[in-house]
Design a protein around this nucleic acid. Structure first.
Lengths: 193, 193
DNA sequence: ATGTGCATGTAATCAGTTACATGATTCC
DNA sequence: GGAATCATGTAACTGATTACATGCACAT
């Protein structure tokens, strides 16, 4: 593939587990080429060449090493959850806006990931078709099954976030209703449930 | 607090939604001081001073602005899920190891987050006690409720990851069992369920 | 004396974002 | 002719990691 193709895959297309802008992709491709992990063929159509990359034997070995070693999950850094922790500094409306943005974001992504899972299960994505059409690749069941499992994980994550945001909205409503009530006499909360 | 105190809070203590090493904290504190968001008091005990920071009025305003504007979640970048997508390049044992590491990691964090939720609900964490003891702060219910909600989100995320990893392990077992079987005659899958 | 915890930094490097920059081709 | 898409880069900056570096206080 070319850098441009990759940018599409990362950005607009279906590979929704990793994002990278083209400004990161092009230099990285050059670095990988210099390291011998990929090789480019320059195609001239019209005047300017485009560089079509393919993996080398060394690159394949590197890829296999990478999948073989389990990567330890990174230290948590969750901007949304961090901000939630300090929502008492915001107005009720701002707090609601916080959860609504979260909800809408993950609702969109839930749909994207879900439809991608369907496409994978149907073996309908261009990349997957290419992989399955190639010869000498291992178990086609495994190729599909691992991807489906990965993206199902993303779908569930999104579902969780949508639900969590909904509960957040309900929480804000409750806190606001509670705050509007006349302040209770200390100790009085025992008498009424 | 001092930079050291903050590093503890970020690193070893209970604030499990954001991580930062001290090498990032100290310069950042100096920058925030230069910007007038925090002010330091140098305490001399023995010989070397330690710098105890407190938020300023400007800093408080900045904090309120930060919580008021909803932050749009970042583009997805999920190393574990990415690797899962290419597990067909790994051996079954390496694939299992991948999911086991994931499982153990999130099992540990699930426990941490869950016990933190309990502590928050009991108003038992040192930081929360300090906040609630301070005067002129708003609704104590809200202070606790938002934090509990945030950390409950983390607990559920961890539960999801644990379950997802378990299913991953089952998937690898199935794929391996399937691969060990004599290769089926094409079309034969119709006759037996 | 030795190790643990308190306490504060710097330096080199890497990863990632945003903006700047260009030009060809193809479709309407 | 103009817009969208193909196609490839660089530059400045910010955020984050890893390693290097130092020194005090206190308990065993």
């Amino acid at each position: 593939m070319t850098g441009y193709d990759l940018a599409k895959v990362f950005d607009r297309s279906v590979e929704f587990v990793w994002h990278a802008p083209h400004s990161q992709i092009y230099p990285e491709l050059r670095r990988m080429e210099a390291d011998g992990l990929i090789a480019a063929e320059s195609l001239f159509r019209g005047r300017r060449p485009k560089r079509v990359y393919a993996i080398t034997a060394d690159g394949r070995r590197e890829l296999e090493q990478w999948v073989a070693e389990p990567s330890v999950p990174e230290r948590v850094r969750d901007p949304q959850r961090l901000k939630t922790t300090y929502l008492e500094f915001a107005s009720y409306d701002d707090a609601r806006r916080h959860f609504r943005v979260h909800l809408e974001h993950y609702e969109i992504w839930r749909r994207r990931w879900a439809s991608h899972v369907e496409q994978l299960a149907d073996r309908a994505t261009p990349l997957l078709r290419r992989r399955l059409a190639a010869e000498g690749i291992g178990d086609p069941e495994a190729i599909v099954a691992y991807k489906v499992h990965a993206y199902r994980g993303m779908v569930r994550q999104a579902e969780l976030e949508v639900e969590w945001a909904r509960e957040g909205l309900r929480l804000v409503d409750e806190l606001e209703a509670e705050a509007r009530k006349p302040s209770p006499v200390p100790g009085a909360e025992r008498s009424s449930g």
